[in-house]
Design a protein around this nucleic acid. Structure first.
Lengths: 148, 148
DNA sequence: CGACAATTATTGTACATACAAGTATCGGCA
DNA sequence: TGCCGATACTTGTATGTACAATAATTGTCG
């Protein structure tokens, strides 16, 4: 004779958002701790990486890839520009503000590599290989799904 | 003859934090959109749920469960107290500030249930059953691991 | 060509988040 | 009993995040 589960019980036992958010906090902290000596946070690091892959990047492109609001990116890029890691590039469309890595930005990534690897290994061990593998697929699906 | 992968390529292809953070943003937005008509965000919703499960909760307990910094919780609880969803309870240890759901808080959870279910279903479809199942295990492991 | 919708970014506002530093209290031990 | 380290929380500061409103530009269609 099980009692009927309350709303509280149901949500506590199954809420996907709760779990994703816990993981996000823990994993973000692992990387931020590792990168702290470099004055870099993983939030900015990921923007640097995406920018590096793109060569010249526009806010809209980066936001689509990272599923970030443009207003969020606007302020993040501003900080990284001040740090000398990104620079604006003139573009054809005057509405857009394309940017790219500076050489300091590229050097920073190289310098951060060992710390990133350490964090990556810690996260991998914590989450398990199977989860990490599914994570890749899930992230790809999410990026392609384009809610809105 | 593959060229050696650069640091940028390696991180772009494999970074766990990048993927977890993308998922976090997308999933959080799904729930926040669904809950917006109620004036509730999933960040606060999860705190309400954990509090509800505990009956009387202390900040330290909630933070350990949700892997939140106490300073973060401090401000979140303050807002929810102002909204009338949480109330302080006198405790024995004067250092601690235990709190619990008010009846308004309980009613809010009931009222939010349909929206939560809608978001939950959208997230489940987006991420896939297999991923969701592993997510539960991963979250439990993370909670038990107690980095520090 | 000119009005208007669509696109792109910035700014105001509110909340989430963590670290560092500070305050209050507790518990144990000399 | 009184000191002192440990514990629990708050506050200052910086960044991350999104939504709404605004500004600037572009594209389109009559």
């Amino acid at each position: 004779m099980d009692k009927p589960a309350t709303s509280i019980d149901t949500i506590a036992k199954t809420c996907i958002a709760g779990r994703v958010r816990i993981l996000n906090r823990v994993v973000t902290n692992i990387y931020d701790d590792a990168l702290r000596p470099l004055g870099l946070k993983i939030s900015q690091g990921n923007i640097l990486i995406v920018t590096g892959k793109m060569g010249v990047a526009t806010p809209v492109q980066v936001c689509e890839y990272l599923q970030l609001d443009v207003s969020t990116l606007s302020r993040n890029v501003e900080l990284m520009r001040k740090n000398g890691w990104l620079e604006e590039v003139p573009g054809e469309d005057a509405r857009s503000r394309p940017f790219r890595l500076t050489s300091a930005g590229k050097r920073l990534i190289e310098k951060a590599m060992p710390a990133w690897e350490k964090a990556q290994e810690e996260a991998r061990k914590l989450l398990g290989d199977e989860f990490v593998s599914l994570l890749n697929h899930a992230a790809k699906r999410v990026r392609d799904s384009n809610r809105t």
